[in-house]
Write a protein that binds this DNA or RNA. Sequence first.
DNA 1: TGTCACCTTAAGCCAGCCTTAAGCCGCGGA
DNA 2: TCCGCGGCTTAAGGCTGGCTTAAGGTGACA
Lengths: 220, 220
Amino acid sequence: MRVLVVEDDPILLDGIKVGLALGGVTVDGVATCADARAALATSRFDAIVLDLMLPDGSGLDVLGEMRGRADATPVLLLTALDETADRILGLDSGADDYVGKPFDLDELAARVRAVARRHAGRAAPLMLAGAIALDPSTLSVTVAGEPVSLSRREFSVLAALMERPGMVRSKGEIEDRLYGWQEEVESNTVEVHIHNLRNKIGRTAIETVRGLGYRMRSAT
Amino acid sequence: MRVLVVEDDPILLDGIKVGLALGGVTVDGVATCADARAALATSRFDAIVLDLMLPDGSGLDVLGEMRGRADATPVLLLTALDETADRILGLDSGADDYVGKPFDLDELAARVRAVARRHAGRAAPLMLAGAIALDPSTLSVTVAGEPVSLSRREFSVLAALMERPGMVRSKGEIEDRLYGWQEEVESNTVEVHIHNLRNKIGRTAIETVRGLGYRMRSAT
DNA sequence: TGTCACCTTAAGCCAGCCTTAAGCCGCGGA
DNA sequence: TCCGCGGCTTAAGGCTGGCTTAAGGTGACA
């Protein structure tokens, strides 16, 4: 198992490395958002331990970028602040778990294990649904081989739907995916994006399930 | 979304109910391990909030039994003790998340959401009755392999019947399933839905037991 | 600083679903 | 054989929820 740890305190980082290594985990450690992005661009991890307060930004940004491009690698957040607001923000923005400092190394290791175990068995790089292909790594979408250009929001909506073709996603879930949920959009944004998406990728690709949400047509 | 909350403190239980209800979650509350087992035996939930310390035993026992029979319903543990040992024990015994009292209601709601969302899409029980297959995870129904499109209410009625093929369900039970167990509809709605269902999935699939209710024909 | 794409908001329209209600049918008991 | 009750069928009406369109705002980029 390979885990990326993003933590700017070198002492803490070392401690985590040792703690996880005892459980047979391979650890890559970086200290900044920039390095984290570089690591994510070049390697695949089974889980990521992510500090929120980093010298060059917030870990939430990195997390948001990942989820935005449909990278589902499990993320465990780490923060000095034990504030409820942070926890909610983190969980709703796509984190899989949360640990507040100070924490116990054994507990962290257990949670990393749990989170990675949960994730195992998923993760397909290229998502397919009928004639539509979505590549999270290049942020590109093709319909019957033809490339289609989508805006950022459109891409996120489509990614949310394609993560599990055939499965119904509620508008609320999709909204949670687009925003951190606490932005609480008071309108029919999702409907509008769905509408625009349908114009671009074909009118029948996204099915409406009245009262429940939307789903990708998985069968052709 | 339907959640079972197992908590013996009535005040806390009430608070949780209200907190979750605000997020559009239907909550069933019980106070003992015994009641929890009964609820689990008769109903299906999207997530379970489980107190560890209960008057007639530990929530861990209930969790253990569930996992023992391969019930993968996501479980969020709740306990007064904020001890690391408990956390690890809980996570490693198959819980999906952990919240220590005192906790914030918003946080609990966010975690329940996160845990249920994570779970959705795995472990499709796929209910069968004769040529009819109902997949709760994709909300889809097929008859002899052919997909059939049902409205939300029709789906609920069918799901209620297929939960236990061969078993009679009264109109009252089905109504309770469609609406919260109050709201008392003053008409023959269920009969109408049954009628429409029969038109869609085949006239013989649902059998009428005069004076008692309806049941699925389990055998072909 | 101006332009452009994109996102959000809002409003009106439309369709499908749910409920209600009324009349009919058939089973079972007298 | 007749009657009553429970279930079946049908159709109408209201309403919710989704679709569509358009306008205004905002941020990026030149």
